[in-house]
Design a protein around this nucleic acid. Structure first.
Lengths: 219, 219
DNA sequence: TAATAAAAAACGGACGTTCATTTTTATTTA
DNA sequence: TAAATAAAAATGAACGTCCGTTTTTTATTA
């Protein structure tokens, strides 16, 4: 048998990785056996080793390809945000992050596997420097907003954008993976609106706000 | 040898569970062997089965005792919050949640283990009905704040309190377990202040706010 | 001494990985 | 065009090790 074409190899690897991912996200890495993977992929046990040196290599390959997919997805999302700190855009961000979480919850489960079973070895840079990355993406927009006077004094655009990103993100993760079951007592639509409003103008009434501003916290 | 006293049994079980937890949070459940646990606890392999029927029983016992500890800790925290939606109290909430996360990060790792390796069997109710629980704890305070007119119209006290709780919580979890490394580009102190301010009065300037209020989102 | 705890040995099975063997198929040859 | 070839792919049994758990043996002490 002559050597398989690169494309044929890619197809076989995809089949194997799909099977492996299915088991990993259901049971974790160590509880998944090579026999499980072989059976689901409809491939012999030994043949797995023609494509991967070890079980961990399968895990790493899954993560590598997923990381580039997610990078593209995030880029797509940011491309649709033209005024990152405008309420309607913030809400749209939340909406798109919700779809991202729901459509690719596997990815985040893999991240938890990595934290638990590999001491976060493969996802180490997921959140490190997150604000810097947003700063790089939206530097111009943030500066324009500042010049226009859109923001209250003291507000760090990149930091609050990251905070909003994390809040949306975490909301959908809890709903999808941690049995949240509408943990804010709101529908997803209402939650998006509520979080957007919080970031836009907070929760205090005008009267209470005036009182608060006279008091302490100004770090 | 006569039967051990209940207290002696409790001490031995604690030793075993401490050893088991140490391994579980480092490698996950399935990657931890009974031999690992026995060695760390300085107990023979067979003797483990005089105290626990199975490996999973050790895991469950750890979770059970931790759940009551965390319940107490949270109760302590809420006892110190007399005006849940007041900025200074919100900040104090965040501060205390930060300590909770940092001092008991094991607990949250166990939760991730449960999500991954047990389909969230033991932590199922962690976030489900979270808002309802806060509503029950702070019902009177929320009503008083409403009567005083502290809050903007449309703000659901329990929902926004939960949102703040989740934001603080997630901030410290990312920092502690996911390599956040000051992911908001702020120190913990600054992050607490920033998040508190967002919840108090949002990020928009007065001018921008007026413009926004004329526009769409009012769900 | 009698009951209990602790330790040690043993069990069957499953693990990740290897490897000798068989099957497959694009290319070469007739 | 059809058969032969040869190299690669696929297979599944086998390897040594480790697994969770059970059983047996030994140590401890009221």
């Amino acid at each position: 048998m002559p050597k398989l074409s690169n494309n044929a190899i890619k197809i076989r690897k995809t089949t194997i990785e799909d099977a492996a991912r299915e088991h990993f996200i259901k049971q974790g890495f160590h509880a998944t056996s090579m026999r499980d993977i072989a059976k689901t992929a409809e491939v012999s046990l030994g043949n797995l080793y023609n494509y991967y040196a070890t079980k961990e290599a399968i895990f790493e390959s899954i993560i590598d390809s997923y990381l580039t997919v997610m990078d593209d997805k995030l880029r797509e999302i940011f491309a649709q945000i033209d005024e990152p700190l405008e309420p309607s855009n913030l809400r749209k961000l939340g909406e798109m992050l919700g779809e991202l979480v729901n459509q690719h919850s596997d990815f985040w489960l893999l991240m938890y596997i990595d934290v638990l079973e590999f001491q976060n070895r493969h996802f180490r840079n997921m959140f490190d420097g997150l604000t810097d990355r947003f700063q790089r993406v939206f530097a111009d927009k943030f500066e324009e907003a500042r010049l226009r006077g859109d923001l209250r004094t003291g507000v760090e655009p990149a930091s609050v954008f990251t905070a909003a990103y994390m809040q949306f993100f975490n909301y959908f993760l809890v709903e999808k993976l941690f049995g949240g079951n509408q943990h804010l007592n709101l529908t997803d639509e209402q939650a998006l609106n509520s979080i957007t409003k919080i970031f836009a103008y907070g929760i205090l009434s005008e009267a209470k706000l005036a009182e608060f501003k006279k008091s302490a916290i100004n770090g």
